[in-house]
Design a protein around this nucleic acid. Sequence first.
DNA 1: CTAATAGTGTCTATTAGACAGTATGTT
DNA 2: AACATACTGTCTAATAGACACTATTAG
Lengths: 274, 274
Amino acid sequence: MKEYKNEAEFLKDYNPEQFDRLSLTTDIIIFSVSSEEVENYRKTDKKSMSVLLVKRNNYPFKDKWCLPGGFVEIDENLEDAPARILKNETNLENIYLEQLYTFGNVKRDPRMRVISTAYMALIDKNRLEGKLSTEASWFDVVLYEEENNIVDIVLNNGQEQISLKIEKVLRDQTTDRYSFHALKNDSLAFDHDSVILAGLERLKNKIEYTDIVFNMMPEYFTLGELQQVYEVILNKKLLDPAFRRIIEPKVEKTDKIKKGEGHRPSVLFKYKSK
Amino acid sequence: MKEYKNEAEFLKDYNPEQFDRLSLTTDIIIFSVSSEEVENYRKTDKKSMSVLLVKRNNYPFKDKWCLPGGFVEIDENLEDAPARILKNETNLENIYLEQLYTFGNVKRDPRMRVISTAYMALIDKNRLEGKLSTEASWFDVVLYEEENNIVDIVLNNGQEQISLKIEKVLRDQTTDRYSFHALKNDSLAFDHDSVILAGLERLKNKIEYTDIVFNMMPEYFTLGELQQVYEVILNKKLLDPAFRRIIEPKVEKTDKIKKGEGHRPSVLFKYKSK
DNA sequence: CTAATAGTGTCTATTAGACAGTATGTT
DNA sequence: AACATACTGTCTAATAGACACTATTAG
């Protein structure tokens, strides 16, 4: 091996081709909340989680749905890639983005070796009416947790329904790390079923000890609406007094009021940052 | 664009060189606990966290310390790379490994664009006396948290001392995600200062709601020893009754006893998996 | 006996869960 | 008036924090 006097000299000689090189992509799971109107005028809208999927019109996985994503460019910081793609896809900037996990199984892309760092984004989708790229569509997400660590996920965009069944296998007795194995997946490309489940779980965990929900809320909201969002993410009903107790320090009462809903009006709150 | 009849045909034609390719490495932060004997024969050993570092004998960062790591091979699953490297470095298999974070700043490696997925490993270092590769050394870790999100980390292997000062910058008001900026780092290569801090924080969080500590413990241990490990990871004293309360469901009393310590003997426990 | 850790009992403070009730708009 | 949600008071259960005490060894 040649001896170098200093680092600069070493770098001048360095040949980056000597090691295997592979492609790195990023996939983004964009979460938002959707409201479905309900026949009874007195009742409030039914909320659910939704994720943005894109229909592939090329091989591989032609005609299947996948998460928005793309290649990480050689001169771009890793975390800038999802921000760029999100801007392309939704025309939104300064979106909440958080690194989820890096998926790197050898066979996850049939073309070649591709490793993908998944990110999770949270938005209020009312901010982008009409700004979506054509191939994208919002899917409502319903998750059923069966007994033996089997999870059913149903995605529905009004026309199409995608059903996934995923087994969670504990990797280690001492912790909470699971690997996911698809038992059923007809319509989602790559390993994006795992990415979606990882995202749902991250969101569910983090809503308990951070303020990230507020990235999915409009500026003004009622505590009832906020509670509904918690309930749909946590997949369980919450008791009103308890909810108001824990949320109280995070929100600020405004003098605005939401009325005309067929029942008692509600005070509008906004997020109180620390 | 050429039209393909099916996916197999598309793949036959596919040219992987059309997108930028980059190198992917993995770095492993291996945590263990070390005990330092104390002059007073009655007192128990002083425990501290330790991490394994390797001295670089090549450019870049020649003569600096870094985390064990290496390139992810093209035909190897991402998570198999740290396991392989750990086996090389310590001759241990079936070690607790958990993906930490993927670091991908453009300039993190002066040679070329390299993205690195960091893993955290937990071991009981008494299992490997004498098995270390020559360039590796255990450094005790002491962490001081200053006020304004500035963290001092001191690493010491008995001969050398490495001092780091890192600023944690909150990326988003709504959550707990920080980016790390080195204010001082004389002796650690790459961005491994950030990896170490990320690892320390992950460990600190996860010890509260998982059983991962037991990966760092010998088969039999006293509750006092276990409590010391908690205290050194959490960086604070715990009250005995409270500690015993929370640890009780996780451990199993054995009929073994540790005596000869200059004070009352202690029952040895072992991990009770669920 | 003494120093040191091992181990326990119990009181108190804080937080979470549950329920029942009152309030107030729309139709 | 009836319905639906808004909002609050309060009791209870569970958990966390604190302190004081007893126990047991090596030297």
